[in-house]
Amino acid sequence: MTFDPSYALEFDFGRGQVRMVNAGERVVIPSDALLALCHGTNDDVVRDFGRRLGTEAGRRMNDRLGEAWQASLETVVEHLGGELALMGFGSLGLERWGHALVLSFRHSPLAPSGDFLLGAVLEGAMQRSFGRDVVAAKLMRDGDQVRFLIAGYDGANKVFGWLSEGVSWGDVLSRLAGADRGAS
């Protein structure tokens, strides 16, 4: 089943409302205003705000897919990416580095300062769609592309530690895979 965005948004000019199919009203605001709001608050507020957005996207994906836990990689990327695209967060991508799951955004209107918000959106979506509490650790940003490693809390802590030491994101993934292989 492919993602069909037709008539996903409904603009009611008489009432002055924007509605999304199978969802409530939406407010179209400038992205820089949203960033300014995020900068004015602390990280917990931004994380909650972002997770709330992601939960909405995950719920709508589940409504489309029915049983999301049986969905393939391509299907999740297509539908979850479609929902996030309708919200205006950019194009979602998926990279698999061994056992590591890396999700990326391209062409996001948010500046690099909004990467924290994007990570929170992904965490909310994963939690809502698959029932897993995940941590979206930002690995790198190259131009208009930003990569997030979807990991648990232990793995995320190691990744943050290595990144703070200056280890490149490729070596971080290698070390993470090596540490997991040595433990097993």
């Binding site: 836990w69 969905a71 299907t75 897993r132 990991a151 648990g152 793995g155 990744v159 997991d180 097993s184």
Partner: peptide, 20 residues
């Protein structure tokens, strides 16, 4: 190589990294 059939398998594998 890991060929996850579903997104959930890959998600669980990724969550298990660094847990031990």
């Amino acid at each position: 190589p890991l060929r996850p059939h579903t997104f959930l398998e890959l998600l669980d594998a990724s969550l298990s990294l660094g847990s031990n």
